[in-house]
Amino acid sequence: MQTNKKHTTPLGIIEGFFGREWHWEDRKNYAEFLAQHHYQFYIYAPKSDKHLRMQWQQDWPVESKEKLIALRNTYGDAGIKFGVGLSPHEIYLDNARDQRQHLKRRIQQLNDLQPDILCILFDDMRGDIPGLAEIQIDIAHEAAALSSAKRIIFCPTYYSFDPVLEKVFGKMPTDYWQTFARQLDSNIDMFWTGEKVCSPSYTREHLLQVEELIGRKPFLWDNYPVNDGAVKSNLLQLRAFDQSHSQLDGKLSGHAVNPMNQAWLSKIPLASLPLAYQQAQNYCAQNAFHVVCEQLCGVELAQLLTQDVPALQERGLKNLDQHERLILRERYSQFLRNPFAQEIIDWLDGVYTFDPACLTE
């Protein structure tokens, strides 16, 4: 396959899902994987880290912070930019001086990690508040001024046209997105997930519409292959990225992929995204799946996965009866030393349970 086209869009991953988080060893191993597959950044932002969300005002315990500093160094050694995502939970409901002092102190603590990227994330929070955009912009500007990170990415409360966001978080204030176009520093990027929270594809027309709306090229938060939602937690999303991803270069300020709870299995679709950018019109998702599957998993396991993708990604765990689960378990038990197979066995055994804190799908 042709893989010689250079692209300009920075590619990376954001560990930004609900539910069971990755092991530290998996996070460290991803530095080499991302470097090998021409990704440029990793952002640490698991929803289960209370020190980034519900208890964002508090620094991590010493042991956890030491692990994060070591992780940052691992990525730096691999030539991968390291980021962190802070979600100052509903700080705008109490925009008092004390809260701003908490924010200042927390940003200074995050500077200890020497992040290349700082994300200020207001997703999964109530939004039906007058003047919301202006308050969030002020917070983003303050965080940017305090941070040592060279790149700041902001996530609004409403980050898609998907009506589920207003259903869950309240009616979006008038001119919410237009206010960012007028007032948010043009050097600050903005996350966007597409027409839906979990968009299967992205059209040129949609991305141009969003660019005009928010006053900058969107920084794509790609919710494939993430599987933390009520429906998708029953699926293993293994297939290569959709054909539309081969036409995204030049239309985005960056592309961050939100992977699955399964760190190893996520590598299969993740390895296909750089191919889509490199091969452009020559990209074939089906071919990419077969190639990366064999490269990552070995020929025998790749053959099994190819046969079982309909059961794993389309039917899902809830629609497999006990007999079917046992058959699948026996098939993958042949590869017990293989971490890809082990994650499938754990999934079949119900290890990855749905986290009801995930309100969007």
Rank of each mutant, 00 (worst) to 15 (best):
Val309Thr: 14
Ala288Val: 05
Leu220Asn: 02
Val226Phe: 04
Leu252Gly: 12
Leu236Asp: 04
Phe335Lys: 00
Pro218Thr: 01
Lys251Gln: 15
Ala302Pro: 00
Pro274Arg: 06
Arg315Val: 14
Gln278Met: 15
Asn234Met: 06
Tyr224Trp: 10
Arg216Cys: 07
Leu312Tyr: 09
Gln278Phe: 08
Tyr224Arg: 00
Leu235Thr: 08
Gly215Trp: 06
Gln237His: 12
Ser244Lys: 05
Glu212Phe: 07
Val226Ser: 08
Leu238His: 03
Gln237Ala: 10
Ile327Met: 10
Ala256Ile: 09
Leu270Gly: 00
Pro339Gly: 02
Ser272Gln: 02
Trp221Phe: 12
Gln286Lys: 12
Ala280Phe: 07
Pro218Ile: 00
Ser233Asp: 12
Ile327Pro: 00
Arg239Phe: 12
Val299Pro: 11
Leu213Gln: 11
Leu273Phe: 08
Gly215Thr: 05
Lys232Val: 09
Ser244Trp: 05
Val291Asn: 09
Cys293Gly: 15
Gln237Gly: 03
Glu294Pro: 08
Ser272Val: 04
Asn338Ile: 01
Ala240Trp: 06
Ala256Gln: 06
Val210Asn: 03
Asn338Leu: 00
Ser233Arg: 13
Ala240Thr: 06
Tyr283Lys: 02
Leu301Thr: 01
His206Lys: 07
Trp264Ser: 09
Glu330Asn: 13
Ala285Thr: 09
Gln281Cys: 04
Val226Cys: 10
Val292Leu: 10
Pro269Lys: 02
Leu273Asn: 01
Leu312Ala: 09
Tyr283Arg: 04
Trp264Gly: 03
Asn319Ala: 14
Leu238Asp: 08
Leu312Trp: 06
His206Gln: 13
Leu296Gln: 03
Val257Leu: 13
